[in-house]
Amino acid sequence: MANKKPNHAARLLRITASWVVALIIFFPILWMVLTSFKSELDAFSMPPHFLFTPTLENYREILARANYLHYAWNSIVTAGGATVLGMLLAVPAAYAFAYHPTRKTKDVLLWMLSTKMLPGVGVLVPIYLISRDLNMLDSKTALIIIFALINLPIMVWMIYTYFRDIPYDILEAARMDGAGTWQTMFRVLIPVSRGGLASTALLCLILSWNEAFWSLNLTTTSAAPLTALVASFSSPEGLFWAKLSAVSTLACAPILVLGWLSQRQLVRGLTFGAVK
């Protein structure tokens, strides 16, 4: 019984530490949401006010000034489309890498990942020119393709890792049972790895939703997603913290809710290979 006490203290310490870390991570979001309900004057005050009279003025003004639903719809279409397209490309690629490796597979995987190290701005001009020549400036299709491609290396890598954790025997058993390649994929491989696939898809969705660089450079109005709307509030007339916070809250809200609902799946997926 003597060792019970330190265990208890350690447990308490661990819980406290986790709460502190969680709060530090969560604080910016909380602050953004709080600020969105302040008046511009309160938002700027130093030291910052924790107690204030909440107002919906910022939200009212934003909704009056811009068509939120238009931008939100663009975000949904581009992020969702990029996720679907990315998965369609990444699953077969990862399947090939995981189950039919060649001597160069590792090199190809590394090369794919290395493209993530190239700063996006390095290819801005060529991609801008290509988009222009293809008549795809300010088009959702262009954003979908670009988002899918910039996330593809990570998606292939993640799915490749999940697939490699699935014993190949299972797929061979399916083949012996009479399943063709597609049946093996849809009736065995995908159901078995659905946790990993879901978290990969969710990650791609979040990354695409939050992507700002290409959205800002390749869209103006008709295809502009929420990130472009947020940026438009840091205007030349000055920073309007409260309004910026309000529009950011609106931009984050859908993905935050989605993340919250699927956090279990996400954590399971992200730690799938690690804790096995």
Binding site: D169, I170, E172, A173, P191
Partner: peptide
């Protein structure tokens, strides 16, 4: 075929 690892479909 009966595999060494059983190779059952876990889902």
């Amino acid at each position: 075929m009966v595999f060494q690892s059983y190779a059952l479909y876990p889902h």
